[in-house]
Design a binder for these strands. Sequence first.
DNA 1: ATGAAAATGCGAATTATTCTCAATTATATT
DNA 2: AATATAATTGAGAATAATTCGCATTTTCAT
Lengths: 146, 146
Amino acid sequence: MKSSAHETIKSKGYKLTHQRQLILSILEGSQTHLDAEALFLLAKRRDPKISLATVYRSLSTFKKIGLIQEQGFGEDHGHFETVSNKPHFHFTCSQCGQVTELRSKKIIRLIKELCQEEDLKMESMDLLIQGLCPVCQEKKSTSTTS
Amino acid sequence: MKSSAHETIKSKGYKLTHQRQLILSILEGSQTHLDAEALFLLAKRRDPKISLATVYRSLSTFKKIGLIQEQGFGEDHGHFETVSNKPHFHFTCSQCGQVTELRSKKIIRLIKELCQEEDLKMESMDLLIQGLCPVCQEKKSTSTTS
DNA sequence: ATGAAAATGCGAATTATTCTCAATTATATT
DNA sequence: AATATAATTGAGAATAATTCGCATTTTCAT
Ligand SMILES: [Mn+2]
Ligand SMILES: [Mn+2]
Ligand SMILES: [Zn+2]
Ligand SMILES: [Zn+2]
């Protein structure tokens, strides 16, 4: 029951390079949803020679073998998180951009049922909700209530 | 109770140019989820002088005033649809790329409840499911069952 | 009809991501 | 441990979607 991610990489026929290990460990250790650039900057602190292209290639590989997932968040670039986390949804605040994770076993079950009814074989789901976080709701009502 | 989209454009202080009317009418008449390039090609058939930049600018404006919504579909470019359609979800086949629309009043209600519980004010939601459509499931099982 | 402000067309610029290719590295084999 | 081979990397060029800059045109209130 050790580092199964490393096993997955090798079992899929990919080499366990130290760049891949580094990138993966950053993703696993991060609580936030990193984008490629942020990940690259963090990686460079431990390996100043690492290339942005390698970050993108690793992300692509990890995604292909199911170690990570990419999130859109309605921006012009992706964000990444490990798949180990239980399935969840994302809420992004349209004002401050903060990302909140939401969970609901019930909703997930209903989505699966919906797919079965339509004879669709689900491989992944992504629910993104946009709106105002509690803090920004407060700000807005304060400035409006003159 | 007439063309409320035109009214919306003017009421928000935007000018009702014939380019905007054209782009909007194409979006309203389309059954598919057009991307900017496809929309541009269709628009050029009726106005050969129209610019791709104008298409992007119009899409951006329409999105801002709530006339249309942009969908990610996990690609490197957006797809667009009018908001008039009842809220719905999207399923894209990872094999053939086909997009299917799904509806579930129940799921929408549960999502709204989930947001209320967390004190989040929802402005929009996007549920994207990826998987295999019935046709591609069939193809896969046929080729596998030697 | 006139004028001011907004919008357009066109090409250049920008940004995220991918590609090319020579040099390096991981792994299997000796 | 040394070698061979194929995969991977770094660096920068290339690409693709989208945005910008600006001169010209159009909308719309007067
Ligand atoms: Mn971001
Ligand atoms: Mn597309
Ligand atoms: Zn997440
Ligand atoms: Zn749709």
